[in-house]
Design a protein around this nucleic acid. Structure first.
Lengths: 219, 219
DNA sequence: ATATTTTGTTAGTCTAATCTAACATTATAT
DNA sequence: ATATAATGTTAGATTAGACTAACAAAATAT
């Protein structure tokens, strides 16, 4: 069994991993807002438990066991977010902090029940995949809205940033998952986009926004 | 803000308090399965925080502030049990351990939402009162079934012990809150009762059981 | 009334998870 | 190629919450 704290490190390692699965001590330290020496010592502990590959001065990498256990924490987090939104009527902007706590509840049946009541969902309210009960997660390859071209019509399928402020901003523009968005123009100097969707015509979105919106070309 | 551990001590003090609101260090120690010296030092800490009246060698007593905060933890616990039973289809025998964890979630809106979805319940699935949002709890005065007399018909309104084993036993006899129970006879030598309720005629219940069932005389 | 048992406290140790200060290694820039 | 900056580690301190051993006070029994 991993402690509350260990679960948080595992989750962070999973979420921060680059293409090769590597994370630096410094990145992890900044992400968790925990000083580097503390991170180093926790990495040694997790290495003892065969959850992390650790060698001095080398980047960190989760072991297979570590990936699985991290995946299971993320599963609990995302099932919780889905439950809060679909069964308890919370807005998607309000679920992150609660899920950060509930993800550490030790009770397999509790999360199995959530899963069942939700009808075994595959994605969470922000469009992120929910790992299966073995901790395995399949990421669909989405495109950033910021990488799309003028004239294209795309479907909004996920958001990268799940901070309350960003999601409240999306709410204020009535931007939600599933929407079809048409790109009318792109400003050359700041990469901001003018787009149309549902009843909104010619809304302007800054690059900070468009690169956090994940889309699929409309077929 | 009280820590997870502090919340558990407060709750225990509340639950163990006798008529005069007093609890001994020893009782508390046994209840929590934490050694006496640890309890003593925690009591000093809670006294610092004005949550407990503490004097060397004297019984412990929650302050008004302490009672309120303990009541709020119990509120979170009982709302959670109610939610698990009524909204997530758990049996009343399976909710205690999960509620022990969820009661420590720090998120007022989370519990407000539960309360709202449940329709502001006044009692939990075991018949215990749910404290209000100021931590105030009103205990109805029930009678123990074991104190009732032959010939009386009573209504089962609460159970004292909420251990999974006891509740599973009640399930196996189809005993549930709200039932009308008629006392047919009482064995003199072991105080066991023969009772009838719903479709069950002449069920025998040991004193260990009858003194854990809280009832009201049928009017 | 005194001895014994039970209850409660003090003093000091331990572990998990954090920190700072100082030092070591690796990466970057001139 | 070397100086500087960034990153990472070691050593030692701190805090919360637990423990044991030893002692002290209160309750109980003879």
């Amino acid at each position: 069994m991993n402690s509350y704290t260990e679960e948080n490190y595992l989750k962070a390692l999973f979420n921060l991993a680059n293409e090769t699965g590597e994370v630096n001590v410094n990145e992890l330290s900044k992400w968790l807002e925990i000083k580097m020496p503390t991170v180093t010592s926790m990495m040694k502990k997790l290495a003892e438990k065969k959850l992390v590959h650790y060698e001095s001065y080398k980047p960190l990498r989760l072991t297979e066991k570590g990936k699985k256990e991290a995946g299971l924490v993320i599963r609990k987090h995302r099932l919780t977010e889905m439950f809060l939104v679909n069964k308890m009527n919370f807005g998607w902007e309000d679920v992150h902090d609660i899920a950060e706590q509930i993800e550490h509840i030790q009770s397999p049946v509790f999360f199995e029940k959530m899963d069942e009541l939700l009808g075994y969902p595959k994605i969470d309210p922000h469009g992120s995949p929910i790992p299966d009960s073995n901790g395995k997660m399949i990421w669909k390859v989405y495109e950033k809205l910021s990488d799309c071209k003028v004239g294209e019509t795309v479907k909004l399928l996920a958001v990268i940033n799940t901070s309350s402020n960003f999601l409240k901003f999306l709410n204020s523009r009535e931007l939600q998952l599933g929407l079809k968005i048409k790109i009318k123009s792109i400003e050359a100097f700041d990469k901001s986009m003018v787009v149309s969707y549902s009843k909104r015509q010619n809304e302007s979105l800054s690059q900070l926004v468009t690169e956090r919106l994940l889309v699929e070309k409309d077929k």
